[in-house]
Design a protein around this nucleic acid. Structure first.
Length: 607
RNA sequence: UGUCCGGUGGUGUAAAGGUAGCACAAGGGUCUUUGGAGCCCUUUGUCAUGGUUCGAAUCCAUGCCGGACAGCCA
């Protein structure tokens, strides 16, 4: 969907935000997108990005990008970098002016709000529009004197978070527990109080300080909220707030050996940044009472954020969990996180899917609390819709069959005008060479065709796109009986402007001039799995599609030599393609993004 | 098992007590120098049973079905 003409989406979360805006509840709407840097972003994250940035965009707000990095064991800067790149790519030209960033290295300010001590870290205000996206993607521009910006990091809040933990202890609302992990689980299951639950404030303070100082090994003590061990919601049964991890953190190094849990860190990170609407997926619904409890039990002087949940995306014929994606990558079942068969944002990008198509997809699937399975056809439609409007048309033959035009002079070449995009007159025209020897698609010829086969057959006529009507006179075979060449005659008056140009023939096929054709590598991708729900039962890997990638050498019209990485191409009558990052001038490599709809294939299949 | 959340054509989503609509998919037609795109048409739905009401997808009750959670992961 092109920016500006997109209809404004409507869903239950936007309804809530709209109501808050109407009530004037907040000076500005502030959302956030908080991935954990422990894997690459996928199309499910794209849904969330479109929601959070979309809301910021539609209601004049800001959306912070935040690394939710409270677990040093799983996180890595590689992921931080990829997340920034993917977010930047997806929102560029659409919501990049809503992107909330902060000055590099900045941590929350200790301020006074409404007469009380407070911590606060608002987005840097000076950045605007594409500049911020640029900074995010590539770091500071040497020509730009502006400050370097970076995303927010939950790990930048470890200091304030520690203070909040202390405050909870002082209020008698948190305690240090010596139970082992297994014991803790068992006690919680049985709704039993920890024997350490009623330690004095002084003892808790002492123990927690010593936890921080590194006196105890991993797992030997934890900080727990003192709520209700018999609460029906298990998350309220004295949940852990802090655990001991003697591990190096990608962002804070060796500064800490205690790390806050998600529940403690997330609500307070939202608060610190001034988030108004904290939107997450359904699995956090049962955590909401805890989210609220923590914020309510600290004396926070500014308005508290609130959490809202929506259903995560499930898409047919793929897997979405980071664990499974990581497994595919680590076991070499795909060629890295940006393998074009993966539903990762980087994979989709490499495959040739555009940000607009992804945003359009997000618009079409909507936002609800119903946990369903979205048909891949919806994604495919969104991709085709965008590519159809913008892709440049080119002629290429994937599986070549030689054709000789016997009445066309040997050695003669002429150039024919071809339309770049019938959907967009402004895309102009290009020249393509024609000569006596051509390649056509093997599929476009059948010696004994079924009824309604409108392509070339012995004695039959067909239009060569942008060129002549030809008639097949002779089928040449090798000793084994394979068709190796077709000898045809052309109606030399039938090209555009000619006497017989308007003659009606049923079929039109694509072609390339043999002498001028470029050899290009085409990577033909198909769905990664053979079943709609690979992870429904058993091992998802047993459903991998063995034919998810086929590499072929195709023959292409010479203008493709100038193919651009950011451009999209439609090889007419076949599919959309985009240049792969491994392409070089000496060896052009194209990824098939998606095939054209093929009603003939469907018809042929049905018999 | 407990807690929470859901259930509208094949799929995804609208309808805030008043004509069940949209998109994708499927089928048919039209057009076409892409069997693409476009345009037109068609099929298919409120989980069940009661209740409230002039009127229920919507409110209430019960039942049924599905999902999430029950990590010192997020």
């Amino acid at each position: 969907m092109t920016p500006g003409q997109a209809p404004t989406p409507s869903d239950f979360i936007r309804d809530i935000v709209a109501q808050h805006v109407a009530e004037g509840r907040y000076p500005q709407i502030h959302t956030r997108f908080p991935p954990e840097p422990n894997g690459y972003l996928h199309i499910g994250h794209a849904k969330s990005i479109c929601l959070n940035f979309g809301i910021a965009r539609e209601f004049g707000g800001v959306c912070n990008l935040r690394m939710d990095d409270t677990n040093p064991a799983k996180e890595d800067v590689e992921y931080v970098d990829s997340i920034q790149e993917d977010v930047n790519w997806l929102i560029a030209g659409w919501a990049d002016d809503r992107l909330g960033l902060k000055l590099k290295g900045k941590t929350p300010d200790k301020i006074t709000s409404n007469g009380k001590p407070d911590f606060y870290l608002p987005p840097h205000r000076e950045h605007a529009g594409a500049q911020s996206a640029q900074l995010l993607a590539t770091g500071p521009d040497p020509q730009n004197t502006g400050p370097a910006l970076e995303p927010f990091y939950a790990s930048d809040y470890f200091g304030p978070l520690y203070e909040y933990a202390l405050a909870l202890i002082r209020k008698g609302k948190a305690y240090v527990c010596d139970l082992t992990p297994d014991e803790t689980d068992e006690y919680r299951r049985q709704a039993k109080e920890s024997p350490f639950r009623n330690r004095s404030v002084e003892e808790n303070l002492d123990l927690f300080t010593r936890m921080k100082q590194g006196e105890f090994p991993d797992g030997h003590r934890s900080l727990r909220a003192k709520i209700d061990v018999a609460a029906p919601n298990v998350w309220m049964r004295d949940p852990l707030l802090y655990r001991i991890r003697h591990a190096e953190h990608h962002h804070t190094g060796n500064q800490w050996c205690i790390y806050p849990m998600y529940d403690f860190a997330h609500c307070l990170s939202d608060y610190l940044e001034g988030i108004t609407h904290s939107i997450c997926t359904l699995e956090f619904e049962v955590h909401r009472p805890l989210y609220d409890w923590i914020l309510e039990n600290l004396d926070l002087p500014r308005p508290r954020p609130h959490q809202y949940e929506f259903a995560r995306l499930n898409l047919g014929y793929t897997v979405m969990s980071k664990r499974k994606l990581l497994q595919l990558v680590n076991e070499g079942l795909v060629a890295g996180w940006d393998d074009p068969r993966l539903p990762t944002i980087s994979g989709l990008r490499r495959r040739g899917v555009t940000p607009a198509a992804l945003r359009n997809f997000a618009y079409h699937i909507g936002i609800t609390k119903y946990n369903g399975l979205t048909d891949v056809a919806v994604l495919e439609f969104a991709i085709r819709e965008d590519l159809n409007r913008h892709a440049l048309r080119r002629l290429a033959v994937l599986r070549p069959l030689k054709v000789v035009i016997t009445n066309y002079p040997e050695g003669q070449t002429e150039t024919l005008a071809a339309v770049n995009n019938p959907e967009d007159a402004a895309a102009g025209k290009r020249q393509i060479p024609f000569s006596r020897e051509l390649f056509i698609e093997r599929d476009d010829f059948m010696e004994t065709p079924p009824p309604r086969f409108f392509r070339l057959k012995p004695g039959g006529e067909v239009r060569l796109k942008y060129a002549y009507i030809i008639q097949c006179q002779e089928v040449v075979k090798d000793a084994a009986g394979n068709i190796i060449e077709l000898r045809c005659t052309a109606d030399l008056d039938s090209k555009t402007g000619g006497a017989t140009a308007s003659r009606k023939v049923k079929g039109t096929i694509h072609w390339v001039s043999a002498a001028h054709a470029l050899d290009i590598e085409c990577r033909l991708y198909d769905r990664l799995f053979t079943v709609p729900e690979p992870d429904a039962t058993g091992d998802f890997k047993q459903h991998l599609n063995p034919h998810s990638l086929e590499v072929i050498t195709a023959k292409a019209e010479p203008s493709l030599r100038e193919a651009q990485p950011e451009a999209r191409y439609q090889f007419e009558r076949l599919a959309y393609f985009a240049l792969d990052k491994e392409s070089t001038p000496g060896k052009l490599v194209f990824n098939r993004t998606i095939t054209l709809k093929d009603t003939w294939a469907k018809q042929a299949q049905q018999g």
